[in-house]
Simulated scan of single mutants.
Amino acid sequence: MLVPEGKAGRLKNGEEYPPNLAGIPGSSLRMARYLLRPAKSDPSLDCCVRYAILRAGDVGEFMRSMLGAATVALLALSALSGCSFFDSNLVTACEKVLKQRLLSPSGYRRVEVSQLSDKVMTREEYGNYLNKTEKDANARTLYMRLFDELKPTIFSLIIRYDAPNAYGTLIRGISACDYFDRNGDASTAAYYSVEVDGKSSSDWSHDRVRELIK
């Protein structure tokens, strides 16, 4: 059933869809709704799709006049260079920590970000990780008991960048960034939970304080 332009509506499964999708007929509406669905496996791709549809302006008019869903799909692909993996929580968190360590954070320029293969830990590897990172013995025991229900994973990135030195000259740098998540979900990464070149944001800050009070 069509909904008048400018009115909010619901799909058969009860989900609401935005006013600018109201009035779109048949398969176009279904495709638009599919593109606007919450991403379950790749939040960064969802970012691109949403961005592309917003770029289209009035989706209802656009889809009716420009071959409907197929055009929106092409528009979504054209936005990949602006979003995708490079605007994920993991990359954002890693770059935030990296910038804090530069002489001139505002001069940071990303050159390339490469994602290495995700490392899913074995039971032994997870146990060793907990021994290094978890001081509470009871917590370590609990986490190990839950191992079969978890998916402990280390996500790793290599970031190549240019940043100015003390004289303002751009210097090429390279850093490694790692993030651990017990459930294997990289979308939960935050600046306080990633490690850049083997140190978290707090570790690096503590080292800086020690250097200043020497």
Rank of each mutant, 00 (worst) to 15 (best):
I159A: 00
V72T: 08
L90T: 09
L11Y: 09
L102Q: 00
V59Y: 09
Y161P: 01
S156F: 04
S28H: 15
L150E: 02
D197S: 09
V91T: 06
N183T: 02
T133F: 06
R109H: 01
S114P: 05
S156K: 08
S41Y: 12
S106H: 13
P105E: 02
D181F: 03
Y191N: 10
L54Y: 11
P38G: 11
M121Q: 08
A22D: 05
S193W: 01
E211D: 14
R33I: 10
D46W: 05
V194I: 03
L29F: 11
L103S: 09
V91I: 08
K199A: 15
A69R: 01
M66A: 13
F85Y: 04
R37L: 01
N138W: 04
R37W: 02
R55H: 12
D118M: 06
R37H: 10
D87E: 14
D162T: 07
I53F: 08
S78Y: 06
I171H: 04
P25S: 15
I24N: 00
Y17C: 06
Q100G: 15
P43I: 08
N183W: 06
T133M: 13
K214L: 09
I24S: 08
V97Y: 00
S200P: 09
R145N: 15
N131F: 12
L35E: 06
G127P: 09
L102I: 00
C47M: 11
D203M: 12
E195T: 11
L90A: 07
L45G: 01
L116F: 03
R10M: 12
V59N: 05
S175A: 10
K151G: 06
L35K: 00
A93T: 04
F155T: 05
A70M: 14
V120T: 08
